[in-house]
Amino acid sequence: MKMLAGRLHLKERGLRMETVDVPEPGPDEVLVKVTAAGVCLSDVHLIEGGLTPRLLDGDVVTLGHETAGIVDRLGDRVEGWKPGDRILLQAGQRDRRGTVYTRGVDYDGGWAEYAVARADTLVAIPDDLPFEQACIIPDAVSTPWAAITATAQVKPGDAVAVWGVGGLGAHAVQLLRLIGAAPVIAVDPLAPARERALALGADVALDPSEAGTIRELTGGGLAVALDFAGVPAVREQALTVLGRGGKLVLAGIANQPVTISSDSFFNYLKLSIHGHYGSDPEHVEELVRLARRQRLDLAASISDVLPLADAPAAVERLQRKEGNPIRLILRP
C-alpha cells in the first residue's frame, strides 16, 4: 500500500512530494491515519538549513511535528486504544536514556497520509475539537504554554511582553491572558500582527520603536519578556525594559550570540536569561483539558487549510509571511 508524503532530502535541502510505502507499526506502535498537520517555521528552518536533525538515522525524513488523526491499526502489544479513536501526537518522544527525539526531525512526521507513532505519544482529543485545531496544540500552543508556565513561571498580575506575534507569539498572548498576566504587551513591527494581538487579548500592542514606553506602561518594568521573534535586537531591547528580578525567555531561534550591553545594569536589577525549547507531554495534556472545557479557543489560529500535495506552496507562503499566518494546515 502506497501513500503521499512530504520528504526532506537533507543533502540538497530539498522538499519533495513522494509516493512511499505506508509504514508498518511495531509491537508498541500505532498506525495513524493523518487528518491534519501543521506547517511551522521550524519546518522552514529545516528546509533552509537553519536547523539540522541531530539524531536522524539517514538523510531523508518526512516533515511535520504537529499531527492529528485517527487510530487506524494497533501493534501487537498496544492496549487502551482502538481503531477510530481521535488523537493528536506528541511532537516527540524520549528513549530509555532520556534523549528526546523530535517528530518530523529525528524520525518521520505527519506530512503524510499515514504516520507511525509509539503508543505512549498518543493523546485522546474530544469529539468537538476539530483536527485542524488539535494538531497545532503540540508546539504552536504547547511551546508558549511551557515557556509561560514552566520556564518563566508567570504569576497572575505579572507584567509580561511578547516580542513576535507569529505562530507561537500569538498563542502566547492568548495564554497569558488566560492565566491572568497583566498587563499583556505585544511588540511586533507588522501592523496586522499588532491588531491580531489586541484581538487575542493583549492590553497594548507596540511597534518596536515604541518599546521604550514599556517601563512607564508597567510602572517599573516587565516581570517577564518572551522572545518569540528570534532576533538579536529583540533580546537587547527586551533587557532594557525588564524590572527588578525580571526574566528574559528565549523561545525564538536566532543562532546568534546573546549580548548583555551592561553587566552593571543586569547585575543591579538581578535580571536573568532563560533558554526555552518545546514542551513536555503534560503541557499538551493540560491544553487538551483546557480545550475540552471550552477555556481555550483555537479557531482563529487556523489561517488556511491546504491539501497535503500543496505542502511546498504552504512553505513558500510561510517564508513570505503571505497573509501573516498563525498556522497553515495540511489535510491529506
Score class of each variant (00 low, 15 high):
residue 60 V to D: 13
residue 3 M to W: 02
residue 289 R to D: 15
residue 214 I to K: 03
residue 256 Q to P: 00
residue 8 L to C: 04
residue 141 V to A: 07
residue 18 E to M: 06
residue 21 D to V: 09
residue 308 L to K: 07
residue 117 A to L: 11
residue 56 L to D: 10
residue 159 A to N: 02
residue 35 T to M: 14
residue 211 A to T: 03
residue 230 G to S: 14
residue 51 L to I: 10
residue 122 L to G: 04
residue 128 D to G: 01
residue 238 A to C: 09
residue 88 L to S: 08
residue 274 H to L: 15
residue 81 W to Q: 06
residue 236 E to S: 13
residue 279 S to N: 13
residue 48 E to N: 13
residue 280 D to T: 13
residue 245 G to T: 08
residue 60 V to G: 07
residue 102 T to Q: 11
residue 77 R to M: 08
residue 209 S to V: 14
residue 202 A to C: 04
residue 174 Q to N: 12
residue 137 I to K: 01
residue 302 I to W: 13
residue 261 S to Y: 05
residue 55 L to S: 03
residue 66 E to G: 04
residue 128 D to K: 11
residue 260 I to P: 09
residue 143 T to S: 14
residue 292 R to S: 15
residue 99 T to N: 01
residue 121 T to P: 02
residue 50 G to Y: 15
residue 222 L to G: 06
residue 305 V to A: 06
residue 25 P to T: 14
residue 34 V to D: 10
residue 159 A to F: 08
residue 141 V to N: 05
residue 203 D to N: 14
residue 11 K to P: 00
residue 1 M to Y: 12
residue 256 Q to I: 00
residue 139 D to C: 15
residue 239 L to S: 03
residue 103 R to K: 11
residue 197 A to L: 11
residue 234 V to M: 01
residue 280 D to R: 12
residue 204 V to C: 10
residue 164 G to Y: 04
residue 207 D to P: 01
residue 251 A to S: 14
residue 197 A to Y: 05
residue 307 P to Y: 10
residue 51 L to H: 13
residue 83 P to L: 08
residue 122 L to E: 01
residue 311 A to E: 13
residue 57 D to K: 12
residue 53 P to G: 08
residue 275 G to N: 06
residue 183 P to D: 05
residue 319 Q to H: 09
residue 44 V to G: 12
residue 264 S to R: 14
residue 5 A to L: 00
residue 245 G to C: 12
residue 18 E to W: 07
residue 70 I to D: 07
residue 204 V to Q: 12
residue 20 V to F: 09
residue 246 G to R: 04
residue 102 T to D: 01
residue 37 A to N: 03
residue 267 N to E: 09
residue 256 Q to T: 11
residue 299 A to N: 06
residue 75 G to Y: 05
residue 112 A to I: 04
residue 87 I to V: 15
residue 104 G to Y: 04
residue 133 Q to V: 06
residue 47 I to S: 04
residue 31 L to I: 13
residue 95 D to I: 01
residue 287 L to K: 10
residue 157 G to R: 06
residue 123 V to N: 06
residue 269 L to M: 14
residue 265 F to H: 15
residue 242 L to E: 10
residue 164 G to I: 03
residue 100 V to P: 00
residue 163 W to V: 11
residue 49 G to H: 13
residue 300 A to D: 15
residue 207 D to I: 13
residue 47 I to F: 00
residue 88 L to H: 10
residue 220 G to M: 11
residue 94 R to I: 01
residue 220 G to A: 11
residue 33 K to Q: 15
residue 103 R to Q: 12
residue 298 L to Q: 02
residue 28 D to S: 06
residue 292 R to F: 00
residue 282 E to V: 15
residue 1 M to E: 12
residue 132 E to V: 15
residue 180 G to P: 09
residue 171 H to E: 07
residue 110 G to S: 06
residue 131 F to K: 04
residue 186 A to K: 05
residue 139 D to M: 07
residue 113 E to S: 06
residue 253 I to C: 02
residue 132 E to F: 02
residue 313 A to M: 05
residue 12 E to V: 08
residue 40 C to V: 04
residue 147 A to Q: 08
residue 51 L to P: 10
residue 286 E to Y: 08
residue 67 T to S: 07
residue 186 A to I: 03
residue 28 D to E: 15
residue 238 A to H: 03
residue 265 F to K: 07
residue 245 G to K: 02
residue 160 V to F: 00
residue 285 E to L: 05
residue 211 A to W: 07
residue 256 Q to R: 14
residue 262 S to H: 05
residue 275 G to L: 10
residue 332 P to Y: 05
residue 196 R to A: 00
residue 85 D to N: 12
residue 42 S to T: 15
residue 155 K to H: 13
residue 268 Y to T: 11
residue 250 L to M: 07
residue 167 G to N: 03
